[in-house]
Amino acid sequence: MAGNVLLWLGCVYRKNLVAEKESILSVFRAAGVDFETLDDEGCCYLPIFLAGKTDMAKERADELESVLSGYRMIVTPCPACYRMFNQIYPEELGKNLRPEVLHTSQFFLRLMKEGKLAPRKEVNMKIMYHDPCELGRHSGVYDEPRELISLIPGLDLFKQRYEREKAICCGGGGLLSAFFPSLAAKVATRKLEEEDRVPDDLEAIVTGCPQCISNIRAGIRYLKNKQLRMNLKVINMAQLIEMSLGR
């Protein structure tokens, strides 16, 4: 297994976003990536850390280190896992992982630049890119997702009022959606209506975080605009790429 790429899915994709997860797997296959997933992956423990249980997160990091060290590269579609391995491990838990850790947006962009993924088919859709807090403000990954989106032909990109460092949180962060889901959903509704001011004909919100996907979907149910409430989709990068690959 050494030398391989590990696709670390994260709890939300494994348990709740199954169709979205399948898209990720199918893009990996389409690009001919030699990769593995773990049967007993388990949690990265960022949520446990954020709940205040630092000791438990530390123990889990010790345990996971031996599993993860066997790979050349870890790719994850979850910005929480990404930040856990890349930032919380070295800064808060005193652990430096050997393998390089990438978010899927970064990995897919590499594949596109290497010619292994060639999105050719026009995707005629009006979309908005949402910066997940864990990926953007907390990890500084702003450019790769945007570059990836720019390489998909046919898209009509709507720019919201605040993005990048100033992007508005969807409400799904910091465990709010686990502690008080109804408020988290209201945050998402308010974000779309009052902060992003999404247009009536927006068709999809593209983002790189399963937590944001779930919570923005919850928020869409309360939108005042019926058309948006019925039609607005929230998708990940892999689903977008799939459309352009013509699958």
Binding site: C11, V12, K15, G42, C43, Y45, P47, I48, L50, A51, G52, K53, T54, M56, G174, L175, A178, F179
Partner: peptide, 30 residues
């Protein structure tokens, strides 16, 4: 905020509802 949460967890006053829901999402018993 993270540091205050650590204090709360140490003091044994993490919200019950969060503990339960997190357990369900992550499969971890806290």
């Amino acid at each position: 905020v993270q540091k205050i949460r650590e204090e709360a967890a140490k003091a044994g006053i993490m919200p019950e509802r969060l503990r339960e829901n997190l357990g369900e999402i992550t499969g971890v018993k806290i």
